[in-house]
Simulated scan of single mutants.
Amino acid sequence: MLEQFPPSDAVGYAELAERNGFTGVMATDHFQPWLPQQGQSAHVWSVLGAIGARTTGDFGPGVTTPTFRSHPAIVAQASATLASMYPDRHWLGIGSGEALNEHVVGEYWPEAHERIDRMFEAVEVIRKLFTASIAGRETRHRGPYFRLETTRLWTMPKTAPKILVATAGPVTARRAGKVADGLITTGAPYDRLAALLARFADGARDAGRDANALPRVLQLHLSWAPTDEEAMRNALVEWPIGGMRFSRSDIRSPFEFEQLARTVRPEDFDGRMLVSADPDLHRAHIQRHLDLGFDRIYLHNVGRNQAEFLEVFGRDVLPRLRA
């Protein structure tokens, strides 16, 4: 979470994670932190370049939004560059965005259906550039939201990065199954996640694709600390976002989130984020998500106790998980 740590610290934790048995890194693409006290918001592409140099596993932007702050062509160029530097390791996560980050460029902030349409058109533009550039030819695009004059990417790997689409809704999940290389979602009640995976699989079948061959990625927030009291304190102070039971997409300021965070209570995390000092409870929680059908799970411990978390989970949790 680049909102919580200076970039050099984040890179160091990625390296430490790998030494403790973790095999990949997802980094957030924010212009602002969720809350003022989180205190950071580094540029994700700069940090990913450093992570690639210091680790050997997979890595990508958990969700970037190639529609407002960055044109899809610029996101395609950044992704292709990383994939050229670190072959077969980088993937590209695409989302529809949140006002917290995207409103800063002064554009009109549209309703959800338009944001989703923009996202899928951005995926189309990026895929056009990847496909044409690998073939050594130019391409162009003219759609409802984006224009691309005749061009290509001049730095391009032999194999394009996989494009994963982020969604929390069944309609978007089915649409993603038709066109994306994989799905990203965040922790939610088990039945809701199972339904989401089912709709993604339906979309893949509609397009004549094998859903089991497509990555199904989960970003799982959790709060672990040596005591339950400390774990809950970390959740309430560092990640009250996890207890907010309403849409956050239209909130524009970390200071607005700070006001809303004051309403979050310990019971608000129930069913949304596991808060516990017991590594075995976390292991069982992660295992259940693997059993649902996710094949990659990126863990975010919400506290500042990252080194301690990486050591404990690398020793007591990861070795006991079944793929």
Score class of each variant (00 low, 15 high):
residue 4 Q to F: 05
residue 4 Q to R: 15
residue 5 F to G: 01
residue 5 F to L: 15
residue 6 P to Q: 07
residue 7 P to S: 14
residue 11 V to E: 01
residue 11 V to W: 03
residue 11 V to H: 02
residue 12 G to V: 07
residue 15 E to Q: 15
residue 19 R to E: 14
residue 20 N to Y: 09
residue 21 G to L: 14
residue 24 G to E: 03
residue 24 G to M: 05
residue 27 A to L: 07
residue 29 D to I: 04
residue 30 H to M: 07
residue 32 Q to W: 01
residue 39 G to L: 02
residue 39 G to K: 07
residue 43 H to T: 01
residue 44 V to A: 06
residue 44 V to Q: 02
residue 45 W to D: 05
residue 50 A to E: 13
residue 56 T to R: 15
residue 56 T to G: 15
residue 56 T to Q: 14
residue 56 T to N: 15
residue 60 G to H: 12
residue 61 P to F: 03
residue 70 S to D: 12
residue 73 A to W: 02
residue 73 A to V: 09
residue 73 A to F: 05
residue 78 A to Q: 15
residue 78 A to V: 03
residue 83 A to L: 11
residue 84 S to Y: 15
residue 87 P to D: 07
residue 88 D to C: 09
residue 89 R to A: 12
residue 97 G to T: 08
residue 98 E to R: 01
residue 102 E to W: 00
residue 105 V to Q: 13
residue 112 A to G: 04
residue 114 E to G: 09
residue 116 I to M: 07
residue 120 F to V: 13
residue 120 F to I: 14
residue 121 E to S: 10
residue 121 E to V: 11
residue 125 V to I: 14
residue 126 I to R: 01
residue 135 A to T: 04
residue 139 T to D: 03
residue 152 R to L: 04
residue 154 W to S: 05
residue 158 K to N: 08
residue 161 P to H: 08
residue 163 I to T: 15
residue 163 I to H: 02
residue 165 V to L: 11
residue 165 V to C: 10
residue 166 A to R: 13
residue 167 T to C: 12
residue 175 R to N: 05
residue 176 A to Q: 03
residue 187 G to I: 10
residue 188 A to W: 01
residue 189 P to V: 13
residue 194 A to N: 07
residue 195 A to T: 09
residue 196 L to I: 05
residue 198 A to W: 00
residue 198 A to I: 01
residue 200 F to Y: 14
residue 203 G to K: 08
residue 203 G to Y: 10
residue 205 R to E: 13
residue 207 A to R: 12
residue 208 G to T: 12
residue 209 R to T: 11
residue 210 D to I: 10
residue 211 A to R: 12
residue 211 A to K: 13
residue 212 N to K: 13
residue 212 N to E: 14
residue 215 P to T: 07
residue 217 V to W: 08
residue 217 V to P: 02
residue 222 L to T: 12
residue 229 E to M: 03
residue 229 E to I: 04
residue 234 N to Y: 12
residue 238 E to P: 00
residue 241 I to H: 13
residue 247 S to E: 12
residue 248 R to I: 11
residue 250 D to H: 11
residue 250 D to T: 09
residue 254 P to L: 06
residue 255 F to A: 12
residue 259 Q to C: 02
residue 260 L to Y: 00
residue 262 R to E: 06
residue 266 P to W: 08
residue 276 S to Q: 11
residue 277 A to K: 15
residue 278 D to Y: 11
residue 280 D to Y: 05
residue 280 D to L: 09
residue 283 R to D: 04
residue 287 Q to P: 03
residue 288 R to S: 11
residue 294 F to P: 01
residue 300 H to V: 07
residue 313 F to C: 04
residue 315 R to L: 06
residue 317 V to F: 01
residue 320 R to N: 12
residue 320 R to I: 07
